[in-house]
Design a binder for these strands. Structure first.
Length: 420
RNA sequence: GGAGACGUGUCAGAGUGGUCGAAUGUACCUCUUUGCUAAAGAGGUGUGCCCUUUAAAAAGGCACCGAGGGUUCGAAUCCCUCCGUCUCCGCCA
């Protein structure tokens, strides 16, 4: 959510920002509506003021005065009700439009139509070459009994999977390693609820948007697609203490995604599934662009270093305008090398929002002068499982069909390879 | 699932139709006095929006007693719905 005053004062900037994000929203219509809103509100408030003034006199008035005052107040009430009705309608439309106004992308964000226009800013690692016919993660993991897609489909349906034996063990190894890695960097571990009230999806700016992307319960709650939602909602409505900034959480949660609209994409394997687990970095900090930028670089670097410690080749891209969410100012994606596909696949997203999310969630703090301000928020994937397995097994496969375990994972996994 | 109680400012806690943005205590800030790891006295201290201006502020108006509706000239107070908390019973990993 942007400040309406900011939109009024920076109309052109907001329009340019929306265009860069390829978001279709009528800023002029919003501003017309906003003029109406303020005019009607002023009129309503004047009538209420009159009502309040008369109410003060009424108890002490004599009978004649009383009945004449009551008469005129009844008339006023009818007028007031009409105007209030009108104001309510205006406010509803106003809110709807306000929720659709995107945050303004940073100047460093490249123009672009879709994710193919994202710009590579970094590559790391040595892509493996194989002197034997290399397998893809499906073949390898099935062969090593790490995963069972057939029974997954039988039990869950499309995109269902069981992780079995070494696959299951590998999961726990990664989680435990990641937990140690990120807590050492000052992140507090937290396990949030993933069944969340729908309003929270508006807070993170996942909504308004495609509701079809979310599983809903019969109580109208949503299954969150990321721990970002409950972790941001965690402090909603609160006034935080500046002393505690930056607040850093490493959240661990299951993630549910219906993948509506992507039925033909990645139909096999572990790249795109309906349920998975993810560790997520969430940061709340003071409202300064420089601070946001600093932490944005930091949390993205955290994930890069985590991937480097595992030894998987990756590429970092800066996302183009069209590939940014409504609230995001700037985003980096980290993509891991998938040898059999011959391309990099997304593993992580690091974004900052300025006060866009905190405004919606009403998360504030008092600055050094004691003034209330909306905090800034950021988030970045720490590690998604099982997607990470795709790159791990393909990059570390051996001629005999086994898969080597990265050095740092060995203590958590308990052996140095997965063999048939 | 059944029965009941409750939701007020930093906190505690009054208030059952008008003089209540809200008693009192507490916390915090300023001042005074005594004089010293403190007490007493006085004053002050919420948030959002609108408007006139502005560097900022300030003045004025409106709203806010869990949320949203309703009744009424007028609602913290009456009615309805929802959310939440607590207690007891039942069920249960």
């Amino acid at each position: 959510m942007l400040d309406i005053k900011f939109i009024r004062d920076n109309k052109e900037l907001v329009k340019i920002g929306a265009k860069k994000k390829h978001v279709d929203v009528d800023i002029d219509a919003l501003l017309v509506l906003d003029d109406q809103r303020r005019a009607v509100q002023t009129s309503v408030e004047a009538k209420r003021a009159e009502q309040n003034a008369v109410s003060l006199k009424l108890p002490s008035a004599d009978a004649d005065l009383k009945s004449s005052l009551l008469e005129s107040m009844k008339k006023l009430k009818v007028e007031l009700q009409t105007e209030e009705e009108n104001l309510k309608k205006i406010m509803k439309d106003w809110q709807t439009l306000m929720l659709r106004v995107p945050n303004i992308p940073d100047i460093s964000v490249p123009e672009g139509e879709n994710e193919t226009d994202n710009k590579e800013v970094k590559i790391w690692g040595q892509k493996p070459t194989f002197s034997f016919p290399a397998g893809d993660h499906l073949e390898l993991m099935t062969c090593l009994h790490m995963v069972d897609f057939e029974r997954g489909a039988k039990v869950h349906g499309f995109r269902g999977y069981f992780l079995t034996g070494p696959g299951d063990k590998h999961y726990f190894a990664i989680w435990n390693y990641a937990l140690d890695f990120f807590t050492k960097r000052g992140f507090s571990p937290i396990i949030p609820p993933v069944i969340v009230r729908k309003e929270n999806l508006y807070g993170t700016a996942h909504l308004p948007g495609d509701v079809e992307d979310y599983y809903m319960t019969q109580d109208g709650d949503a299954l969150a697609g990321t721990a970002e939602v409950p972790l941001m909602a965690y402090h909603s409505g609160e006034v935080l203490d500046l002393k505690n900034f930056p607040i850093k959480y490493i959240g661990f949660s299951p993630c549910f995604r219906r993948e509506a609209g992507s039925h033909s994409k990645d139909v096999k394997g572990l790249i795109r599934v309906h349920e998975f687990y993810k560790m997520e970095q969430v940061v709340l900090c003071e409202a300064s662009h420089e601070t946001s930028v600093k932490f944005h670089e930091e949390i993205n670097r955290n994930t890069e270093e985590f991937i480097e410690s595992l030894g998987i080749p990756y590429q970092t891209v800066i996302n183009c305008g069209a590939d940014l969410g409504l609230g995001q100012v700037k985003k980096y994606d980290i993509n891991l090398w998938v040898p059999k596909e011959g391309k990099y696949r997304e593993i992580s997203s690091a974004s900052y929002f300025h006060d866009f999310q905190c405004r919606r969630f009403n998360i504030r703090y008092r600055d050094v002068l004691g003034k209330l301000k909306y905090a800034h928020s950021l988030n970045c994937t720490a590690i998604p499982t099982p997607r990470i397995l795709v790159s791990m097994v393909e990059n570390f496969q051996q001629a005999d069909g086994s898969v080597l375990i990265p050095e740092v994972l060995k203590p958590y996994f308990g052996s140095d390879s997965i063999k048939k």
